[in-house]
Computed example of a mutant assay.
Amino acid sequence: MSETIRRRGGTGYLLLIPALLWLGLFFVVPLYSLVATSLFDPAGSDFRGYTMDWAFGNYRDAFSTYWPPLLRSLVYGGIATLLCLLLGYVLAYAIAFKSGRWKNLLLVLVIAPFFTSFLIRTLSWKLLLADDGFIVNTLQAVHLLGADGRLLATPVAVIAGLTYNFLPFMVLPLFASLDKIDGRLIEASRDLYANPFVGFWKVTWPLSLPGVVSGTLLTFIPAAGDFINVQLLGSPNQAMVGTKIQSLFTDANDYPTAAALSVILMVLIVGMVLVYVRRAGTEDLL
């Protein structure tokens, strides 16, 4: 029996090898390359015009120069995540508890945007929010926008694009958590004379927290690093850190600063995620 257990354990380790090789090749190696590039001396001339000089000053220079778009990225990503949570929770709740035999169809509709390119979806928002478009004309007609008001090239357009594009990442984890809740627990709260709000806050919300945490992480992390939405829907005044990193890599060819800025963003997000998950206290994620 013990020999059989050891064989099964050895088989388990062998099955891990492909995944470890994949992570090593496509995560560890690129991460090492990124960190190493962030320490090159821009004044050198060995590797693409740079030399390894352990230039930790690159981080100071990158942060002092680009802290506004860095902060803007966190703010825009946070607002979009909050909007996705509010909209996604209502939608996931309706699908889990109210949809009946339409549940599968509604789930397909949630993921339907993924059948279209991210770029095409964002360009569609650009058409919807155009200055002479239906939305702007309607808002001007009801005097919510001035005669010369616009939505494109504003924070509203960027956050709206982020919210739309990343909403499915919020809905699916929320639905998975809500769908697992035993309906008898909700009925029990009613039998104990709890009103719908108290029953939701005491029963449904705590049981759905794993989905809330997973959804907010899956939404906030890509939203904070996004650059397509601000490039198509915003202006230089709404530039996010992803836009600056892309520009530094491809236009300015300033690899050390771009890499340093990437590492700063990654460290900030990882730190925020660790604090958030610990404060949320969801055992399923720790």
Rank of each mutant, 00 (worst) to 15 (best):
residue 28 V to M: 08
residue 183 G to C: 07
residue 224 A to E: 08
residue 253 N to V: 09
residue 241 V to H: 00
residue 205 W to Y: 12
residue 284 D to M: 11
residue 267 V to D: 07
residue 61 D to I: 00
residue 184 R to P: 05
residue 112 A to P: 04
residue 225 G to V: 10
residue 78 G to Q: 09
residue 284 D to E: 15
residue 20 L to W: 07
residue 252 A to T: 13
residue 44 G to F: 03
residue 281 G to I: 10
residue 162 L to R: 07
residue 21 L to V: 13
residue 264 I to F: 02
residue 92 A to P: 03
residue 185 L to K: 02
residue 25 L to R: 01
residue 284 D to L: 14
residue 95 I to F: 04
residue 128 L to W: 02
residue 24 G to N: 06
residue 166 F to K: 01
residue 240 M to W: 01
residue 18 P to T: 10
residue 282 T to S: 14
residue 59 Y to E: 12
residue 230 V to M: 07
residue 12 G to M: 15
residue 82 L to G: 13
residue 190 R to F: 08
residue 81 T to S: 14
residue 172 L to C: 10
residue 28 V to H: 03
residue 59 Y to A: 14
residue 208 S to I: 03
residue 156 V to A: 15
residue 94 A to F: 03
residue 106 L to W: 06
residue 278 R to Q: 14
residue 170 M to L: 05
residue 213 V to G: 09
residue 192 L to A: 11
residue 2 S to T: 11
residue 284 D to F: 02
residue 118 F to W: 04
residue 17 I to A: 10
residue 148 D to P: 01
residue 53 D to M: 06
residue 18 P to L: 10
residue 174 L to H: 05
residue 284 D to N: 12
residue 184 R to T: 11
residue 122 T to V: 01
residue 68 P to N: 07
residue 205 W to M: 15
residue 233 L to Q: 06
residue 280 A to S: 14
residue 92 A to H: 00
residue 134 F to A: 15
residue 50 Y to C: 11
residue 193 Y to L: 13
residue 101 R to C: 06
residue 180 K to G: 14
residue 67 W to Q: 10
residue 125 W to S: 09
residue 83 L to K: 01
residue 54 W to A: 15
residue 143 H to K: 14
residue 220 F to G: 08
residue 75 V to W: 06
residue 211 G to R: 11
